[in-house]
């Protein structure tokens, strides 16, 4: 296991819409060991859904490709990474603005939800190489130790 990591889960799946639900269920199950409240888990589910949906919709315009979701537990914090190896985002800053969307149906809400529901969100992207979204979330309430 990597240094300083208490637990880890790695998922790899094709960029198909049916895998979005699977990814959020898996991440929520992994997160359950951290003592998140039910509303916090719901927030996490939305953030994961948005990050994976972005990869499914935007990363591979021609044919499906791989999406990887990694969850790590480090010192009571959950780290979620969603990575694709697709077309990348030309202007990450513009893509993160709430009004921005290349898909009018989703109204550019994806990153707004990730920002609202996670403690931190970092986006790294290279055109032609892919995009990595790194998010962290820590339970607001300290776990009860018995």
């Amino acid at each position: 296991m990597p240094d300083g990591v208490d637990n880890i889960m790695e998922l790899r799946f094709p960029s198909l819409a049916e895998n979005v639900g699977m990814a959020r269920v898996a991440v929520a199950a992994f997160a359950s060991q951290l003592g998140f409240t039910v509303p916090e888990v719901e927030e996490l589910r939305v953030a994961v859904s948005e990050a994976v949906s972005n990869a499914v919709i935007h990363a591979y315009p021609d044919e499906p490709g791989w999406v990887e979701v990694t969850c790590k537990l480090r010192e009571g914090t959950l780290l979620v990474t969603v990575r694709d190896y697709g077309c990348g985002i030309e202007d990450v800053e513009a893509a993160r603005r709430p009004a921005y969307s290349s898909d009018p149906e989703r109204m550019g809400l994806g990153f707004a939800f990730m920002d609202s529901f996670m403690d931190s969100v970092e986006v790294e992207s290279q055109v032609g190489k892919g995009t990595t979204v790194r998010m962290t979330k820590r339970p607001k309430r300290e776990p009860i130790r018995v």
């Binding site: 859904s49 948005e50 009018p104 149906e105 989703r106 109204m107 809400l109 939800f113």
Partner: peptide
């Protein structure tokens, strides 16, 4: 039991 921006997009549409 769950909604994200994809569902909201349809409501807005």
């Amino acid at each position: 039991t769950f909604v994200d921006s994809s569902g909201i997009g349809v409501l807005l549409g």
